[in-house]
């Protein structure tokens, strides 16, 4: 259909552009896309260009923001210096030790490490804690009986006390010992898991609890007197 014909029809009787004509003329339009013209059709070119640009922008956006279709967002990998890593490791160890202490030790030694006068010896400032790491590890592993003196005050246990009546792993012992040795103003070096397992195997055959003096003599150097 030529443009002139089209126009003349449109203008001839515009108010009576019936539905049939609407359908027919548009069907014609769809069939003959190229109206006779010498110039390029600008509109389709513009649309093709726009569409191309859109696809380009969209693919870049897709590649950047879909996180490779993973379920979970990327975890930020923070590059830490060796020092930071070390301090984070120690922090985690101590906070784990704190939880173990609260669950298994604080009922007697109290959350503040002060113990109960005449009943349970304090851990804060105790020479037994600041002594060689072997002391605290051995006590936790096997328990203690008899009378001991802590900071010059005597504490007696009528019965033998098992600190670890429920099995406790080397790692847990290392963590809780490290916590005890560094909390409430205590300032002793950390206890490693390897060290505890070494202590455990050293005394694997021992059946009964330690007596205070036994440990004192074993580690006499570190008690400082």
């Amino acid at each position: 259909m030529s443009e002139d014909q089209q126009k003349s029809r449109n203008l001839s009787n515009p108010s009576e552009f019936s539905d049939e004509e609407i359908v027919k003329s548009h069907v014609e339009l769809a069939k003959f896309k190229h109206e006779p013209t010498k110039n390029f059709l600008k509109a389709p070119l513009v649309f093709v260009f726009v569409f191309g640009c859109l696809i380009f922008v969209c693919s870049i956006q897709l590649a950047h923001s879909t996180n490779s279709f993973q379920l979970h967002p990327p975890v930020d990998v923070v590059e830490l210096t060796a020092e930071e890593k070390e301090s984070m490791r120690l922090e985690k160890k101590i906070s784990s030790g704190e939880k173990i202490f609260a669950a298994r030790c604080a009922s007697c030694h109290q959350a503040n490490g002060m113990g109960i006068e005449g009943q349970f010896p304090p851990l804060a400032g105790s020479e037994w804690v600041s002594a060689d790491a072997g002391v605290i590890s051995n006590i936790i592993l096997k328990g203690l009986k008899g009378e001991i003196s802590v900071n010059g005050v005597k504490y007696g246990t009528s019965a033998a006390v098992n600190m670890a009546a429920v099995p406790i792993s080397d790692r847990e012992i290392a963590n809780v010992s490290t916590y005890v040795r560094q909390a409430w103003g205590n300032d002793s070096v950390e206890v490693t898991e390897e060290f505890v397992s070494q202590v455990r195997s050293e005394h694997a055959a021992k059946q009964d609890q330690w007596v205070g003096d036994e440990l004192r003599s074993m580690f006499s150097d570190s008690f400082g007197n």
């Binding site: 696809i55 956006q61 879909t66 993973q70």
Partner: peptide, 18 residues
Amino acid sequence: VPMWIPAIGTVMSIAMVF
């Protein structure tokens, strides 16, 4: 939700320009 769900939404919204 997985990141691809809103990401595809955004991209296709841009494509809706056409």
